[in-house]
């Protein structure tokens, strides 16, 4: 598939001497919302696709946050990956469509991404189906 071939190409950022400063600002934003989560139970999401990134910024952010203890895969209208980073309460969520192309990428600051929980509508539907047995 052409999209995957594209992702396979190793893109090297030519300049290493330049720091965009984007990492600083997003990390402090994340830290602020993490405090809010602890103190006021407020969850927050950041749309990573709406960021004016410099080349390589997103990779740097992901490398900095790292992989934590838990990873969840969801299959609904294509794959979705949820994993907690090394920083507890910070999740990275990637949604793919049926063609395995990324259609959404977010940082979620939460104890558990909402979509992981069983959904009420689906539970109702399950009851219906079980009763039909």
């Amino acid at each position: 598939m052409s999209s995957q071939a594209l992702a396979d190409i190793k893109v090297q950022v030519e300049s290493n001497e330049y720091e965009s400063g984007n990492l600083d600002s997003i990390l402090s934003e994340i830290a602020f919302h993490l405090e809010q989560l602890l103190e006021q139970k407020k969850t927050h999401s950041i749309d990573l696709r709406a960021m004016p990134w410099s080349p390589g910024d997103e990779d740097k952010l992901e490398a900095y946050l790292g992989q934590g203890e838990i990873q969840i895969e969801l299959n609904a209208l294509g794959k979705s990956l949820f994993y907690e980073t090394q920083y507890s309460g910070i999740w990275i969520v990637t949604h793919y469509n049926q063609e395995d192309e990324i259609i959404g990428k977010l940082i979620e600051i939460t104890y558990m991404p909402e979509m992981v929980f069983s959904q009420k509508d689906d539970v109702k539907d399950s009851i219906e189906r079980l009763k039909q047995y």
């Binding site: 927050h44 999401s45 950041i46 749309d47 696709r49 709406a50 969801l74 609904a76 209208l77 294509g78 979705s80 949604h95 469509n97 259609i103 959404g104 977010l106 909402e114 979509m115 959904q119 009420k120 509508d121 689906d122 539907d125």
Partner: peptide
């Protein structure tokens, strides 16, 4: 046969597409 999760995922992608913040999902 799309579940609520699928629908919410669809809404997440659509919100991002419309350049709206995730709080609008």
């Amino acid at each position: 046969g799309v579940t609520r999760r699928g629908f919410m995922k669809y809404c997440t992608a659509l919100t991002s597409l419309m350049a709206l913040p995730p709080s609008m999902i």
